[in-house]
């Protein structure tokens, strides 16, 4: 008996550039349950990023409804959306995720600080999560002093630290070599299992698709395939 973290209904998104209309999403209906580790694949321009943005409350759909953690998003104000992101959603982007002037520790701490968690508790949570992603030793380094893989692990730690309902990751391994990418995925899979956090990826990466428990393929702004794999 697992409830839905994400529910979209007939989500459409049309970008208008002058006279040209780009129909990035053409009616997406999908549901994601708690604890799923889902990958969205599809050719470039198929609408993966656009879909993640709708789910992540970064952008509003042209029509249709998006529900995240039981809340209807489309009627929310900007501040309400910011609040939902802060408390319910973690983000990992392709690159440049981190605040350059903050250390690894502070980058992770930022989310908790914004949530108003007190300092002592923040410290413990941050050190624990950095330990989990294997970066405790690099806690006081700034992003510029870390490798791309290390930076992505900090980004994952930041996304996970507040135990959000959902983590959205837009091509998190795209800038990493396959070995580093694999380790990042391994780590995320472990966090997914240990903390029962829902992950939703977009990816071109075959390996990410292999790791996922569910694979949704997009094509031309529509869902072409939705395969629930055997849990391993």
């Amino acid at each position: 008996m697992s409830k839905n973290i994400i529910k979209t209904q007939a989500v459409k998104k049309t970008f208008e550039q002058g006279k040209i209309k780009v129909r990035a999403l053409r009616g997406i209906d999908m549901e994601v349950k708690k604890g799923e580790f889902t990958a969205i694949s599809g050719p470039s321009g198929s609408g993966k990023t656009t879909l993640l943005n709708m789910i992540g409350c970064l952008d509003n759909p042209t029509s249709g409804q998006v529900e995240v953690a039981g809340k209807e998003v489309s009627k929310m104000s900007k501040t309400q959306m910011a609040n939902l992101r802060l408390h319910k959603i973690g983000f990992v982007f392709q690159a440049y995720n981190l605040v350059p002037v903050l250390t690894a520790f502070e980058n992770v701490e930022l989310v908790l600080a914004l949530q108003g968690v007190d300092k002592k508790k923040r410290k413990k949570l941050c050190l624990d999560i950095l330990e989990e992603v294997g970066l405790k030793e690099l806690a006081s380094r700034r992003p510029a002093e870390m490798s791309g893989g290390q930076q992505q692990r900090v980004a994952v730690a930041r996304a996970v630290v507040a135990k959000p309902a959902l983590i959205l990751a837009d091509e998190p391994t795209a800038n990493l070599d396959s070995e580093t990418g694999a380790r990042l995925l391994e780590m995320m899979r472990k966090l997914n299992k240990d903390h029962n956090i829902t992950f939703l990826f977009s990816t071109h990466d075959k390996m990410v698709m292999d790791y996922s428990s569910r694979l949704i393929s997009l094509s031309d702004g529509m869902i072409k395939n939705d395969i629930l794999k055997q849990q391993n």
């Binding site: 992540g56 970064l58 900007k78 501040t79 910011a82 609040n83 992101r85 802060l86 408390h87 959603i89 973690g90 983000f91 982007f93 440049y96 995720n97 981190l98 605040v99 930022l110 989310v111 914004l114 949530q115 930041r158 996304a159």
Partner: peptide, 10 residues
């Protein structure tokens, strides 16, 4: 953009 995505208010 990143800061706002992770929930920092405007």
């Amino acid at each position: 953009g990143v800061l706002k995505s992770i929930g920092m208010s405007p």
